[in-house]
């Protein structure tokens, strides 16, 4: 059994240590806000925070997450995360919405390290998150808007 601390709640999961954190979160814990997009850390749909750092959970073994603080989209509720979600609604970012959990997780992590990011900072931090619907410019504006709100 592996003990996971997800969104300040402790879960015991019966998983092999090499199972990607993504599948432990989705299949075993049952939180489905974290999305599967590519399985090889190329699209960012599965982004979660491990000890505050954004990681691609599809390529992060669950064994390595044991004992660490994991935050998923369902647990984004502190000041910065709330501002990001609010900005996402205010600027109507989502289209299909499938990638947006991951986008919000990356954006939240960015604002934690850089409360007032430049466009170049945003490009760098969000480069790993794909959006086929093409909401990038709204994401950019929403990150700036969230920065204003914080």
């Amino acid at each position: 059994m592996i003990q996971l601390n997800i969104n300040n709640k402790v879960y015991e999961v019966d998983a092999s240590a090499d199972m990607p954190l993504l599948w432990a979160i989705r299949d075993l814990v049952g939180l489905t806000g974290t999305k599967f997009g590519c399985g090889i850390a190329q699209c960012g749909a599965c982004t979660v925070h491990v000890n505050g750092t954004p990681v691609r959970s599809c390529s992060f073994p669950v064994g390595a997450a044991a004992g660490k603080m994991i935050t998923t989209i369902e647990g984004v509720n502190e000041k910065i995360g709330e501002a990001v979600k609010k900005a996402w609604i205010e600027l109507q970012v989502p289209q299909c919405g499938y990638c947006q959990s991951g986008q919000i997780m990356s954006a939240t992590a960015l604002l934690k390290s850089k409360p007032h990011p430049t466009d170049a900072d945003i490009d760098a931090a969000m480069q790993g998150n794909l959006c086929r619907c093409g909401t990038y410019q709204r994401i950019r504006s929403a990150i700036h808007r969230a920065a204003e709100m914080i």
């Binding site: 806000g33 979600k85 989502p94 919405g97 919000i104």
Partner: peptide, 21 residues
């Protein structure tokens, strides 16, 4: 008008087939 599902999307609600169980 704002997307009626926007507030569900940003909190990761299970809206997609992938999420169904």
């Amino acid at each position: 008008q704002k997307n009626v599902e926007g507030s569900k999307i940003v909190v990761g609600k299970s809206l997609f087939t992938m999420d169904y169980k």
